[in-house]
Design a protein around this nucleic acid. Structure first.
Lengths: 195, 195
DNA sequence: CGTCTATTTGAATGTACTCAAAAGCGGTGG
DNA sequence: CCACCGCTTTTGAGTACATTCAAATAGACG
């Protein structure tokens, strides 16, 4: 099994010796997820956190009209989970599934809790992951509230050019809080700015 | 100095012995902040994190039209900082000031980093704080995008009844991403649902 | 090839905004 | 203690941004 990418991801924030790295990798289970396959559905308990080794996952929730609202996309080298369910033990509010055939490493909550006891450095690692996630979501809240649909789209496509390649327009629209029709209008306006 | 409230806050997530508690409180500096007084302005470096012992603080940022957009309110027993500036060392994007005369405990980033080395349990504490903040902001993003202005208002007033008492309508409106005029219309509609 | 879904385009509609003016409220100074 | 000033809240008319619904076109997948 190829642990190099995930260990490199960990090494961005903490330094592990060989034994600690072995302890960590022993807890990981690798899983292949086919395109459109789900790894979490609303109402289930989310007991694990996933590291995306290859491919793309999407988290979304269904509103009362039954529309899919994208919460986040996770491509190679991202971590993803229903953090609410994971942290509180309450039923998941979101769905997570694969947009492409993907390879992920999963870490069970119980194992992670034990790992925190054995190698406290991991508390630090996940503190930083959570901190960065918080910063990202706070920025997103701010921009949702203060920018127009067009500005949100331009912003997103600059910040996450990789997502634009691999995620459908409909899903981008739902991430940005607008209808797919309106995103299409925005894009056509941007294509011919002269008229 | 009365450390009971902040120690009780810490005790929600980790257990400290006397020595650790003393080590922690020795790093705190208490500060009185008068109504309308600022503790952080855009462009400054945010080198500390604040625990609100009494009173109310508000974080907001100025958009390009010069409007104040509220990012968060922090009343008694909340933690607040410009997490982006605090974590990255980049200039602050937000302003933080007091809505009432308030008493806060501040912890310097340098001291906190040393504390993490001395008492690793604090990594855990702040992991949980960051995790909860992430959950809160993620929920906020979702609701901003999928709920109408009226639903956002109803939601907010249910979830944070304390804020409604202590924060002006204009500031609530800016937190919810609507104009104060429109919030006023919503409230008047809710007052007389019959007509 | 045929089916299903995504994207584009357009017309009608609605939600929320802008601008303006009046009323309410709180703080400050005479 | 009252009067005034500035800011918040209310109300209303006109407008703009974004949605809904519908239909045509394009793409993806088996």
């Amino acid at each position: 099994m190829d642990y190099s990418a995930i260990l490199k991801n960990i090494a961005k924030h903490i330094t592990l010796d060989e034994k600690e790295a072995a302890c960590f990798t022993s807890l990981l289970s690798y899983r292949e997820v086919k395109k459109k396959e789900s790894i979490l559905q609303e109402g289930q308990l989310c007991r694990n956190i996933s590291y995306v080794h290859s491919g793309v996952l999407r988290a979304y929730y269904l509103d009362k009209e039954g529309n899919e609202n994208s919460i986040m996309f996770a491509i190679d080298d991202w971590w993803v989970t229903d953090i609410y369910s994971f942290a509180t033990g309450n039923p998941a509010v979101m769905h997570i599934d694969a947009l492409e055939n993907s390879g992920i490493f999963q870490l069970q909550k119980d194992d992670l809790d034990r790992l925190f006891g054995q190698v406290p450095k991991f508390e630090r690692f996940f503190r930083i992951i959570m901190q960065n996630s918080y910063i990202r979501e706070q920025l997103r809240s701010i921009q949702n509230l203060s920018l127009s649909a067009e500005e949100r789209y331009l912003n997103f496509s600059q910040k996450y050019p990789d997502f634009m390649q691999r995620v459908s327009q409909k899903q981008v629209a739902s991430y940005l809080g607008m209808t797919p029709e309106f995103l299409s209008v925005i894009r056509s306006k941007l294509r011919k700015p002269s008229e």
